[in-house]
Simulated scan of single mutants.
Amino acid sequence: MISNLYSLPTEGAEVRQFCGGNLQGEHESCVQFAQIPGAETAYVLTDSKPEGAGKELRFDEAELDSFVLGYAAERGLKL
């Protein structure tokens, strides 16, 4: 586990977007996701909406896996 994910630089991260909310509004809502360069098990999540600009959440692989599995189970989604 990385002790301070927020100390890692994110320059050069290859960002992927997962969109689908607010399709009728001025700004489509997207979650932006990237692996933090140089850290194989560290990830950063951001929000594409103007209100979320500059804010981010960082997780290690175990934390992100736990969230995804828990969210899918609560929603009754199959992985």
Rank of each mutant, 00 (worst) to 15 (best):
Y6R: 06
Y6T: 06
Y6S: 07
Y6G: 07
L8A: 13
L8Q: 06
P9S: 07
T10A: 04
T10D: 01
E11Q: 14
A13G: 06
E14F: 15
E14H: 08
V15F: 10
F18I: 11
F18L: 06
C19Q: 07
C19I: 03
C19E: 03
C19L: 10
G21I: 05
G21S: 06
N22E: 13
L23D: 10
L23M: 15
Q24L: 14
Q24H: 13
G25I: 04
E26H: 09
E26V: 11
H27G: 07
H27M: 10
H27L: 08
E28N: 02
S29E: 01
C30M: 03
F33M: 01
Q35Y: 07
P37V: 07
A39R: 06
A39C: 15
E40W: 15
E40Q: 11
T41F: 05
A42T: 04
Y43R: 02
Y43V: 03
V44H: 00
D47V: 05
K49T: 07
K49S: 08
G52F: 03
F59W: 08
A62P: 05
E63T: 02
D65G: 09
D65Q: 14
F67D: 05
A72C: 08
A72V: 09
E74N: 12
K78F: 14
K78P: 04
K78H: 12
